[in-house]
């Protein structure tokens, strides 16, 4: 069972339906007490960094999610959900994130159309876990105005380019994140979610 964190942000239904279509059991979790029933967690999210952290805090998600990550079970952040894994977000001032990944979330340089919206290609550096079987040049659907900067480059599993090269997938051990929306990136995004589902089932 894969649990999707519902903290009032993002299109949860799309993630749930994509997993179901691929044949996995998924449920939208409205309370942290449901974490004990799942073997994998997806943290989705759209909107602003500080608001999202605030919502996670109000829903009492932060400590249970930190404890879950310590267990070594699969964890995937999507879009803003990926950015929240970092220590600090620079959207509308500096705000602390969940801190699973050392690094910051920063704004694209001026002169580009913002948000970075649409289908862009991946350059896969680490073809493991969710990045298995993803060919170079595969397209994924992005919508974001900020991008992540891990302190250590070995967190970067795939990059994309928009004005500059930025991390599109980050991951080590059980903590992974995708800047784009795999649930909206048919067909390769579904391959990626399928990779996540297989990983969860093989636990």
């Amino acid at each position: 069972m894969i649990g999707i964190v519902d903290y009032g942000r993002g299109n949860l239904r799309s993630v749930e339906k994509a997993l179901e279509k691929l044949g996995y059991e998924a449920k939208i979790m409205i309370s942290p007490t449901e974490i004990k029933d799942v073997q994998g967690i997806i943290l989705p999210g759209v909107g602003a960094f500080a608001d999202a952290m605030d919502s996670l805090d109000k829903g009492n998600w932060i400590k249970p999610l930190q404890e879950y990550v310590q267990t070594g079970k699969p964890f995937l952040g999507i879009c803003l959900g990926m950015q929240l894994l970092f220590e600090i977000g620079e959207e509308h001032g500096e705000h602390p994130g969940l801190g699973f990944i050392p690094g910051r979330v920063v704004k694209f340089p001026p002169g580009l159309k913002i948000p970075h919206m649409g289908w862009n290609t991946l350059d896969v550096r680490n073809p493991e876990k969710i990045c298995a079987d993803i060919p170079g040049g595969a397209h994924f659907y992005f919508v974001h105005s900020y991008y992540v900067q891990p302190l250590a480059s070995d967190w970067i599993a795939a990059t994309s380019e928009y004005g500059l090269e930025f991390p599109a997938v980050v991951g080590q051990d059980n903590v992974w994140g995708a800047q784009f929306h795999p649930e909206k990136s048919s067909p390769w995004g579904l391959v990626m979610l399928n990779n996540f589902g297989k990983w969860v089932n093989n636990q």
Binding site: L22, G23, S186, W188, L190, V191, N194, G197, K198
Partner: peptide
């Protein structure tokens, strides 16, 4: 893509 069977990749 030649997107035949993405739901059968498992």
């Amino acid at each position: 893509e030649g997107r035949s069977s993405m739901f059968e990749v498992r």
